[in-house]
Design a protein around this nucleic acid. Structure first.
Lengths: 207, 207
DNA sequence: ATACTGAATATTTTATTGATTATTCACAGA
DNA sequence: TCTGTGAATAATCAATAAAATATTCAGTAT
């Protein structure tokens, strides 16, 4: 009931421990087959005590999904940080990484993948958080490309948004079951090429 | 039990009548709230008789969804047929039409939209039918653009596939709830521009 | 034989209940 | 006052039975 305030870092640490214990349970037994009592047992505390750190079970699931999203964003950010890489290479890496992370989740943590899909259906907030951040990263990427003289994009925001839309397939866990990794890679490469090359014949610049 | 063979056109006509009656029921009451008895009543026949024209209730639903898909494909095909339009305009129209058709379904026939989503989850066949045909249309569009000297695409198939991937957002009924039509239109325009313009600076040609 | 139906059967939903689990709360120990 | 718990309550799940519906089939009419 009371939100602890004495030692903030203590609280955060406990929240982290609860999250880790929950993730482990969710990963191997799934969300529904995991009980609050089990999570509490793993941590040698009472189930009631969990509620001092998380509003309810669903909010633990959301924290778990947010963690997945943040891991994903970290992976994507690291692509942008790669020094010595051109903007084109970064875009290619961005799309590839997006795909690999999505697919890896499906293959290695199917129960977590289910959780992500399920939570995403209900929490528009989390979905928007993910989309917003990804779009922003793409904006930075485009800006970098512009500054390097590699791209000549006028409206950076609009282009980032369009890029984001275009690579949606490699971003949505729900789609990962549709094709094999092999097929996805081919599609990712084709899409990357198209986005980089453009459809119009050479023609210098416009308006 | 026996498949009628006496008069093929008669049979097809009855199938069509059943489909129309079912569509009407599905549209207003939804698939689950529609009974075979009701469909039969609407047509002044017995429920048993429906099984002489459709394998079961699900196959009626599939026929209904296929009809939606075919309507969609017809709309897209008509974009390609527009004489006097450039390939760029056709691509723009293709994407716009894809969006409008998807959104219209969500807005005006939500129960049908649900049915499409539900059937699509189970029937990979229908999904692939739709995707295959759309991809093929995009292939034709690209070819037209090439022949007109407007595009200079080397691998037409790969590019069509990439284009298709890129406009996925405007193609999947499931996504239609995410944004308003207004927002979708903006995104569609941005994506169209990106796909047409390309990211790379002027640079004439490659390889 | 072919088209069709009513009645029989099989399958799927709904309702009900008991058991499990999530959540709250009043209280105990620092 | 803050951290925590056991026990009470509320919500959800699982199992079963009852009802509704889908599907089949034997048989009638043409």
């Amino acid at each position: 009931m009371n939100i602890p305030v004495t030692d903030l870092s203590e609280v955060l640490e406990t929240r982290e421990k609860i999250l880790l214990a929950s993730e482990k349970r969710f990963e191997f037994y799934g969300y529904n087959k995991t009980t609050m009592a089990e999570i509490a047992d793993d941590l040698d505390m009472s189930a009631a005590n969990l509620y001092r750190f998380y509003k309810n079970k669903k909010s633990i699931a959301e924290a778990c999904v947010k963690r997945c999203i943040d891991d994903r964003l970290t992976a994507l950010r690291s692509v942008l940080k790669k020094s010595g890489a051109s903007a084109s290479e970064k875009l290619s890496g961005f799309i590839q990484t997006s795909l690999e992370v999505s697919y890896e989740q499906l293959e290695n943590k199917p129960k977590i993948n289910e959780l992500v899909i399920s939570v995403s259906r209900e929490s528009t907030e989390l979905v928007m958080y993910k989309l917003e951040n990804e779009r922003q990263l793409l904006g930075e990427l485009v800006k970098q490309g512009n500054q390097a003289g590699e791209f000549s994009v006028q409206d950076v925001e609009a282009t980032a948004s369009a890029l984001h839309t275009s690579i949606l397939l490699f971003d949505v866990p729900l789609f990962m079951g549709l094709y094999s990794l092999q097929e996805f890679r081919t599609m990712a490469n084709q899409t990357t090429e198209l986005l980089l090359r453009g459809l119009l014949a050479r023609k210098g610049k416009e308006a």
